[in-house]
Design a protein around this nucleic acid. Structure first.
Lengths: 168, 168
DNA sequence: TTTATTTTTCAAAATATTTTGAAAATTCAA
DNA sequence: TTGAATTTTCAAAATATTTTGAAAAATAAA
């Protein structure tokens, strides 16, 4: 397989993959393109490579910057802004975990904490089922929260080595 | 908070939560409703509780069954089918991991295996960046694959206890 | 300053996804 | 068998999301 074909395939699969994770196709494709580019790319480069409009490119580049996955770089003597993706995949994963934890897990845990306080007689099986289910989800969520915190802080080598030892 | 209000909130948040994970709102809401219901519900019960059409209910119930999260039950003396959700949250998580691994991670790894074979001189920095990035993603993906396999096989108690010990 | 270049915004258009509901198919009791 | 109850299907409608592109705003060189 040629490099250009490989790039195409990677970008298109990463785009499809992203859509299963609540990330829109274009954002994932821009990320993929930057991940496999040796040099920084300008907004125009990205528009050309992916055949997308200026607005679309701009919006999704900014969103990638918000997620901490892409950075602006200024090339000396150039007026345009250029962009590079963080290439250390473990950092990328930690960054995504960090953001999604903040945006999704934490608000959900906050709600679950309120929901376990629902009024009513626990001898009523409807109340019992509700409280039990919510408590169990909350318990699991709290465990996940702790575990993810540790992953966010972990170094890749430590983490991978420990995991392989642990789950042998 | 009253039980009915708690149910509403839980269902609506679970629905919103689901959309961040590539699951459609209605499917997540039906799942939430069944999770906190003490008794099996019929398709009509679900349509009434969530105010959705017959076709929508039917389609999403079947999808939940495909995912192994919901089961049909036949109540003696009743013509209708009824449905219950798996209430053991750890089983639910394992089931979701299992399905998503099969549907998403495995095809991605298959592609990455092809992409590292891209032709070209690795002294060319474009080739090098591509191959290095793809290799690193592949490495992480393979580690995730192994780890998830072990989670799928693990018992909840063993898993939670080990995790808390491990990540102390 | 001006002015040319680049970035951002956002309403409208294009696309994609979800939902509806009525008709067809299936199931099961009589 | 028949026929009433129930489930499934699927084209069309409704919604939601993404994309476009032109205009406005911002930026920096002349």
């Amino acid at each position: 397989m040629k490099l250009s074909e490989g790039k195409q395939q990677f970008i298109s699969s990463w785009g499809a993959f992203g859509t299963h994770w609540g990330i829109n196709r274009t954002m994932a494709q821009i990320h993929a393109l930057l991940l496999v580019s040796a040099d920084p790319l300008s907004q125009d480069n990205i528009m050309d490579e992916l055949n997308i409009s200026r607005g679309n490119a701009n919006m999704n580049i900014r969103e990638l910057i918000n997620w901490g996955l892409v950075e602006r770089v200024i090339l000396t003597g150039e007026r345009k802004e250029y962009f590079v993706a963080e290439k250390d995949i473990w950092k990328v994963v930690r960054q995504i975990i960090k953001e999604r934890k903040k945006r999704e897990l934490e608000p959900m845990l906050k709600l679950l904490n309120q929901l376990v306080e629902v009024e009513g007689d626990k001898r009523d099986k409807n109340v019992k089922t509700f409280v039990d289910t919510v408590s169990n989800i909350k318990k699991l969520g709290q465990q996940a929260d702790k575990t993810l915190d540790l992953m966010i802080r972990a170094e890749e080598n430590w983490f991978l080595a420990s995991l392989s030892k642990f789950f042998k």
